[in-house]
Write a protein that binds this DNA or RNA. Structure first.
Length: 271
DNA sequence: CCGACAACCTGACGGC
DNA sequence: TGCCGTCAGGTTGTCG
């Protein structure tokens, strides 16, 4: 799924289609994804005008002039399809706006979610309340990483995937950020050198910014709402590169499994 | 508190 | 062609 850069790409793609527009119809082809939708989701959205499309971590936030915020998560396979030629399997929710545009929320695996809450309470929503700072925001930096890593036995990989530490990183960008900062994914948090943490503090925002510039990474499912494919996957240095030569030293990139998920790394550059 | 793991669900791909 | 096993960008609950 989509990680921070992909969600950012999606929300940027929705902005010109939605902001200032009224929802004229919201079609619910099912009443739940990962969780049940709010009972009055369609009713509260229909007739409301979108005032902003935002992102928090991997969540998309759509504010309306009725004081509501739609909180959407794309799970692993979620996509927002803008003006689809035809509806497809797994187009679970379809949004129509006054400008004639149609957006279909498609999610084959149904790990995504939709919630609707009062905008003023959105930050306190259970999904958002426990999230750590944005990796592209002022709350992220070396001090945060030092606090989060100090004394921890858990592997660096797991610490960065923990959304309570820093919110928005997923498997791809954690692998890439660890490579750029020379940290072995299995290294215990407390054993990561200060110099490495400093590199990590720079690598995380750098890799995310580059990915956003590229429109995200289009692997199986991700595309901007208008169908444009991101191309940051061409910039992967380790993710999915098992057996390929490290771009820095030429060693073969390795893959290990941590907590059931693949980690890719260079055994020579990452310690 | 911490960390590993299963579960949620469908689809794509490789091997036979 | 088809069947089977494996894997996939995430989150959450359980268990030891």
């Amino acid at each position: 799924m989509p990680e921070l850069p992909e969600v950012e790409t999606v929300m940027r793609g929705l902005t010109p289609a939605w902001v200032g527009q009224r929802f004229t119809r919201v079609i619910l082809n099912r009443q739940d994804l990962r969780r049940p939708f709010p009972q009055d989701l369609g009713q509260r959205l229909t007739g409301a005008t979108v005032t902003a499309c935002r992102r928090r971590a991997k969540y998309g936030l759509v504010d309306t002039d009725r004081g509501d915020t739609l909180i959407l998560h794309l799970g692993m396979s979620g996509r927002m399809r803008l003006d689809p030629a035809a509806l497809q399997k797994h187009d679970h929710v379809v949004f129509e706006t006054g400008n004639g545009r149609v957006v279909a929320f498609n999610d084959a695996r149904r790990f995504g979610s939709l919630d609707l809450v009062a905008t003023v309470a959105a930050a306190d929503h259970p999904l958002l309340a426990g999230l750590g700072p944005e990796p592209l925001g002022p709350g992220f930096g070396l001090p945060l990483l030092q606090r989060g890593f100090a004394g921890r036995v858990a592997p660096a990989k797991a610490l960065l995937l923990d959304q309570r530490m820093v919110a928005g990183l997923g498997n791809i960008y954690v692998c890439e950020a660890l490579f750029r900062s020379g940290i072995h994914p299995a290294r215990a948090g407390g054993d990561v050198a200060r110099s490495q943490l400093k590199a990590l503090a720079a690598a995380v925002p750098a890799v995310l910014e580059e990915a956003i510039q590229a429109g995200g990474s289009s692997l199986r499912d991700h595309a901007a709402p208008d169908g444009t494919l991101g191309y940051f996957q061409k910039g992967f240095q380790v993710y999915g590169q098992e057996g390929e030569p490290c771009q820095t030293c030429g060693s073969a990139v390795e893959r290990i499994t941590q907590s059931g998920r693949s980690s890719f790394f260079c055994p020579r550059c990452q310690r």
